[in-house]
Protein backbone atom coordinates (compact mmCIF):
# COMPACT_ATOMS: atom_id res chain seq x y z
CA UNK A 1 0.00 0.00 0.00
CA UNK A 2 1.32 3.42 -0.90
CA UNK A 3 1.74 6.23 1.59
CA UNK A 4 -1.15 8.05 -0.01
CA UNK A 5 -3.42 5.01 0.25
CA UNK A 6 -2.58 4.75 3.93
CA UNK A 7 -3.31 8.43 4.51
CA UNK A 8 -6.62 8.23 2.69
CA UNK A 9 -7.80 5.10 4.45
CA UNK A 10 -7.09 6.70 7.82
CA UNK A 11 -8.56 10.10 6.84
CA UNK A 12 -5.23 11.40 8.06
CA UNK A 13 -3.05 14.47 7.78
CA UNK A 14 0.73 14.33 7.31
CA UNK A 15 2.59 15.96 10.16
CA UNK A 16 6.06 15.56 8.69
CA UNK A 17 7.27 17.61 5.72
CA UNK A 18 9.30 16.58 2.71
CA UNK A 19 8.44 12.92 2.58
CA UNK A 20 8.82 10.72 -0.44
CA UNK A 21 5.31 9.94 -1.73
CA UNK A 22 6.42 7.10 -3.93
CA UNK A 23 7.19 4.86 -0.97
CA UNK A 24 4.96 2.07 0.19
CA UNK A 25 4.52 -0.21 3.20
CA UNK A 26 3.38 -3.80 3.40
CA UNK A 27 2.50 -4.42 7.07
CA UNK A 28 0.83 -2.84 10.03
CA UNK A 29 1.37 -3.12 13.76
CA UNK A 30 -0.74 -1.74 16.59
CA UNK A 31 0.92 -0.93 19.90
CA UNK A 32 1.52 1.75 22.48
CA UNK A 33 4.38 -0.02 24.20
CA UNK A 34 7.71 0.74 22.64
CA UNK A 35 9.33 -2.43 23.97
CA UNK A 36 6.57 -4.40 22.27
CA UNK A 37 7.11 -2.53 19.00
CA UNK A 38 10.84 -3.12 19.23
CA UNK A 39 10.41 -6.84 19.89
CA UNK A 40 7.49 -7.78 17.69
CA UNK A 41 6.70 -5.27 14.93
CA UNK A 42 7.36 -6.52 11.39
CA UNK A 43 9.54 -4.19 9.32
CA UNK A 44 8.19 -2.18 6.43
CA UNK A 45 5.19 -1.30 8.63
CA UNK A 46 2.70 1.35 9.61
CA UNK A 47 2.67 1.72 13.38
CA UNK A 48 -0.79 2.44 14.79
CA UNK A 49 -0.32 4.09 18.19
CA UNK A 50 -1.19 6.93 20.51
CA UNK A 51 2.40 7.11 21.74
CA UNK A 52 3.22 10.64 20.59
CA UNK A 53 6.68 10.66 22.08
CA UNK A 54 10.12 11.40 20.71
CA UNK A 55 11.31 7.89 21.62
CA UNK A 56 8.72 6.39 19.31
CA UNK A 57 10.77 7.62 16.37
CA UNK A 58 13.95 6.02 17.70
CA UNK A 59 12.16 2.69 18.00
CA UNK A 60 10.68 3.08 14.50
CA UNK A 61 14.10 3.48 12.94
CA UNK A 62 15.31 0.37 14.74
CA UNK A 63 12.23 -1.68 13.85
CA UNK A 64 12.02 -0.52 10.24
CA UNK A 65 8.71 1.28 10.61
CA UNK A 66 8.04 3.84 7.90
CA UNK A 67 4.83 5.49 9.05
CA UNK A 68 3.63 6.35 12.53
CA UNK A 69 -0.13 6.81 12.58
CA UNK A 70 -0.92 8.82 15.71
CA UNK A 71 -4.51 8.08 16.74
CA UNK A 72 -7.20 10.30 18.27
CA UNK A 73 -5.68 13.27 16.43
CA UNK A 74 -3.26 13.65 19.30
CA UNK A 75 -0.81 16.51 19.03
CA UNK A 76 2.66 15.65 17.86
CA UNK A 77 5.35 17.48 19.80
CA UNK A 78 7.92 19.44 17.82
CA UNK A 79 10.88 17.31 18.96
CA UNK A 80 9.13 14.19 17.69
CA UNK A 81 8.39 15.82 14.35
CA UNK A 82 11.99 17.01 14.00
CA UNK A 83 13.37 13.57 14.81
CA UNK A 84 11.00 11.91 12.33
CA UNK A 85 12.05 14.20 9.50
CA UNK A 86 15.70 13.62 10.36
CA UNK A 87 15.26 9.83 10.40
CA UNK A 88 12.98 9.67 7.36
CA UNK A 89 9.93 8.41 9.25
CA UNK A 90 6.53 9.79 8.24
CA UNK A 91 4.01 10.84 10.87
CA UNK A 92 0.31 10.80 10.16
CA UNK A 93 -2.41 12.11 12.43
CA UNK A 94 -5.68 10.21 12.26
CA UNK A 95 -8.97 10.89 14.05
CA UNK A 96 -9.60 7.17 14.55
CA UNK A 97 -8.77 5.05 17.56
CA UNK A 98 -6.31 2.15 17.32
CA UNK A 99 -8.98 -0.47 16.64
CA UNK A 100 -10.71 1.51 13.90
CA UNK A 101 -7.43 2.49 12.29
CA UNK A 102 -6.28 -1.14 12.32
CA UNK A 103 -9.53 -2.31 10.75
CA UNK A 104 -9.24 0.29 8.05
CA UNK A 105 -5.65 -0.62 7.24
CA UNK A 106 -6.56 -4.29 7.02
CA UNK A 107 -8.73 -3.44 4.03
CA UNK A 108 -5.58 -2.26 2.28
CA UNK A 109 -3.03 -4.85 3.21
CA UNK A 110 -5.21 -7.88 3.20
CA UNK A 111 -5.99 -8.47 6.83
CA UNK A 112 -4.36 -10.71 9.35
CA UNK A 113 -1.22 -12.39 8.33
Amino acid sequence: MTFEEVRKSLDGVWVTDGLDDSQSVSNAYTSDLLSDVMGNAPDDSVLVTIQNHLNTIAVCTLAGIKIVAVCHDRDVPQDMKDAAEREGVAILRTPYDQFSASCRLSELCGGAR
Binding site: A28, Y29, T30, Q98, F99, S102, C103, L105, A112, R113
Partner: peptide
Protein backbone atom coordinates in the same frame (compact mmCIF):
# COMPACT_ATOMS: atom_id res chain seq x y z
CA UNK B 1 -0.98 -15.84 20.36
CA UNK B 2 -1.63 -12.97 17.93
CA UNK B 3 -0.33 -9.45 17.83
CA UNK B 4 -2.87 -6.80 18.61
CA UNK B 5 -3.15 -5.68 15.00
CA UNK B 6 -4.09 -9.18 13.92
CA UNK B 7 -6.62 -9.50 16.70
CA UNK B 8 -8.25 -6.26 15.58
CA UNK B 9 -8.52 -7.56 12.06
CA UNK B 10 -9.85 -10.98 13.04
CA UNK B 11 -12.49 -9.46 15.32
CA UNK B 12 -13.41 -6.92 12.68
CA UNK B 13 -13.97 -9.63 10.09
CA UNK B 14 -16.00 -11.70 12.50
CA UNK B 15 -18.14 -8.70 13.42
CA UNK B 16 -18.70 -7.77 9.80
CA UNK B 17 -19.69 -11.34 9.05
CA UNK B 18 -22.08 -11.33 11.98
CA UNK B 19 -23.72 -8.05 11.03
CA UNK B 20 -24.34 -9.62 7.65
CA UNK B 21 -22.37 -7.19 5.52
CA UNK B 22 -20.00 -8.35 2.89
CA UNK B 23 -16.65 -6.68 2.40
Amino acid sequence: PYAKYESCVRLYKALCAESGSEE
